[in-house]
Design a protein around this nucleic acid. Structure first.
Lengths: 352, 352
DNA sequence: TGCAAGATCGCTAACGTGTGCGCACAATGG
DNA sequence: CCATTGTGCGCACACGTTAGCGATCTTGCA
């Protein structure tokens, strides 16, 4: 009895008017019961409910979405490889925040990865109409056209991390696309301020790529901290990396070659700080006594380096929650807004 | 101009017959062009394509799904917390395999986490009709009714890991629900065989919970390896844990208290092996000289213990690919099947 | 030139649901 | 007993698409 024809399928799922005829009412009444409208008598409601239970009726999402224009689900799209998505604790934190914020809602979260062009194309194609009510985008490239494209198609979008061209707009300002970003500038100020407080004066910076918002903002925070302390910014104390471990190693060698009296290094990412740490050791510098070192991001390895890394922590879970908040507002019809979440310094043994 | 009425929406997305009237053809022709039917003349095709581009038309998925009964997307549902999903490399491997197998297809992968009852309810509700074409389920509870429920609703399901009640059916056998499982029994046989090859004779086992298929199978493999070697199975050399680190610690203390001459331990999970390793050290036993130790799973920490852990590796990526293969077959109308993927031993320093 | 076959395309009937409109019927007041 | 109000519910249309059935037009052959 399992192979009489190609696909048994149990004669299709029950439909709205099968329920209606079994309950002896019209389609409209069944629909009203399903959607909890008050305009239906207790006995009719009971009869309909009975029929629903007996038939195992469950409304067809496609048909409902077609008429209501809603799907009751949202997507979180990450433009990264599985490797990094599952490796970096950052993403886990975001997802945790997003899930917790969505818990109060009826909205279902769907996670998608899109790194290769083919995947990106497919995701775009699937997102683009009537599959979700809104999209959260994580870690996309510099000038990725995806957010604009989606918004243009009428799909609310919220970005995690500030888009590169949105550098000037502060928190709360309205822009063409909503985003949540950590206070990179403030965090860098905290880090460098901490080094200044501890009496360091020759503070070098390993900056991130200047075509990424985080890179620019963190360097700006470095400059501002020195400024506020009345110290001049010595451009020869700034080297540029690409957030990677290797680039941190190269940068710190260059910095010390330029000026051996450097007594502190601010690295714009923990990975670069880890590279810097290795190079410093190889150069015979002791951390933190000879050179203090501060990173940024508070990734997991920052706790396990020797010595453990002082770094700037970003509240990733809060970022996830804020993304949901903005997205819900956007779905409800609000204009795009930007919010900034605060960062704070985690003091460990790489500074003293 | 942004607040004249409640929701501008740019007058709605263009529809099929807006394209048709602009191109001067009928709706059917536009549909044929969009779906790549050969039954349309080059000039009509060009006109339609032009109109599509100008209007930025993109087909409405809900309407299409309503008539075709397909959504061109599948779900991977993991019944775990974000913590574990993003922490355990197992899931990353599965996702990598699934993604790579899906790359040839037009199907979009949606990942969902469902641990709490509320989340489970919501996922079930969203899956249950017309949101995806098929579902892959990972790490669900013992007698979870979800797979049966979904199959009953007409949704193809593939399980990662053997359901508890399916212990007897071997690879390829037809069952009521499709699943992919690692050869736990064979892996355990390899592990214990390795210990026997190295001359160990008092081999204890830390078994997993016996209400989980993996726990039962791995213990069965242990017994069978001894059996094949003509050795009796001493029940006092078997202790039971729950796959956790703490339970491994407790179990090994109990085993050594029962019989101090134990010269090898087979742990049914790497986490239990890590716990056992710590307890052995505290008990003054040297690994591997006094007691050899083998784990199971080949998780990331197995490489970083001291000494690094010999363990049984499961080809998680291949499991992901197999899950997709089974799901596609299932969607195409095939009956549920079961497949088993091979495991192999990774020799490290905890055995000699 | 006439006829048939094949290519091309328009029309229309679903797909299953939400919802406004209007009707029937019960309750209440005069 | 009749008029009026209000509640409950059936009817039918709309949502945007696919697919099958013919209608029309072109083309080849006798």
């Amino acid at each position: 009895m399992s192979s009489t024809n190609s696909r048994p399928r149990s004669a299709g799922r029950p439909t709205l008017d099968e329920v209606a005829s079994r309950a002896g009412v019209g389609r409209g009444t069944v629909s009203r019961v399903v959607n909890g409208s008050p305009q239906v008598s207790p006995e009719a409601r009971a009869a309909v409910q009975k029929a629903i239970d007996e038939l195992g009726y469950v409304p067809n999402r496609a048909a409902r979405a077609l008429v209501t224009q809603r799907t009751d689900s949202v997507a979180l799209v990450v433009s990264e490889s599985e490797e990094r998505v599952f490796g970096e604790p950052f993403f886990a934190g975001i997802v945790r925040g997003v899930s917790s914020a969505l818990a109060d809602t009826q909205l279902q979260l769907w996670l998608a990865m899109a790194q290769s062009p083919a995947e990106r194309q497919r995701v775009e194609h699937h997102l683009t109409n009537q599959h979700v009510d809104g999209v959260m985008l994580l870690s996309l490239h510099d000038a990725d056209p995806l957010p604009q494209l989606l918004e243009q198609r009428g799909l609310p979008v919220v970005l995690g991390g500030r888009p590169a061209r949105m550098l000037s707009s502060a928190g709360g300002a309205s822009s063409d696309v909503a985003f949540v970003d950590a206070d990179n500038e403030g965090g860098a100020r905290l880090a460098v301020g901490h080094l200044l407080d501890r009496g360091r004066r020759r503070i070098a910076a390993i900056a991130g790529p200047q075509d990424m918002a985080a890179g620019v903002s963190r360097l700006a925070g470095y400059r501002e901290a020195l400024d506020r302390a009345g110290l001049p910014v010595d451009e020869s104390l700034i080297a540029y990396g690409d957030f990677s471990e290797a680039s941190g190693e190269v940068a710190v060698r260059e910095l010390l070659a330029r000026d051996p009296s450097v007594d502190a290094v601010f690295a714009a990412s923990d990975l670069m700080a880890v590279g810097a740490l290795r190079a410093l050791r190889e150069l015979g510098k002791r951390v933190p006594s000879d050179v203090s070192l501060v990173g940024f991001d508070d990734v997991a390895i920052a706790r396990q380096t020797d010595p453990p890394l002082t770094t700037v922590h970003q509240p990733v879970e809060a970022m996830g929650r804020e993304m949901v908040r903005l997205l819900l507002a956007r779905i409800a019809g609000a204009a795009p807004t930007a919010v900034m979440v605060e960062t704070h310094l985690v003091e460990r043994a790489s500074t003293l």
